[in-house]
């Protein structure tokens, strides 16, 4: 059997209810996708946390670099007009 060191890392996403979005809950080691799914079931859903699981090998996630945060995210901070907060919403629209 291969050792744990050889097993790649997988990221686990769980949707708590059908129709809700999958949220990242953590990561684990597994030799293949099937094992990753079963491990995720055992590690992350043993207290009824979810009804759907996605696993993706960590190496396939391309992430933003914290060093780029100024360029990436700073400019959005002073653009309050991008939030639709200047409108009076009708009462019927209650989930904005």
């Amino acid at each position: 059997m291969s050792t744990k060191k050889d097993w790649p890392l997988w990221e686990v996403f769980i949707a708590s209810k059908r129709g809700l979005n999958h949220k990242h809950v953590g990561s684990l080691h597994a030799a293949d996708a099937e094992m990753a799914l079963e491990n995720a079931r055992d590690v992350y859903t043993r207290r009824k946390e979810g009804e759907s699981i996605w696993v993706v090998e960590s190496k396939f996630i391309f992430a933003s670099n914290p060093e780029d945060n100024d360029a990436f995210f700073e400019p959005a901070k002073n653009k309050v007009y991008r939030h639709p907060t200047f409108y009076d919403l009708p009462d019927e629209v209650n989930k904005m």
Binding site: M1, K4, W7, L28, H29, A30, E38, N39, D42, V43, R46
Partner: peptide
Amino acid sequence: GPALEQDIAITN
């Protein structure tokens, strides 16, 4: 267990 994930699976 041989790995944390299998340890939990077997205990479950």
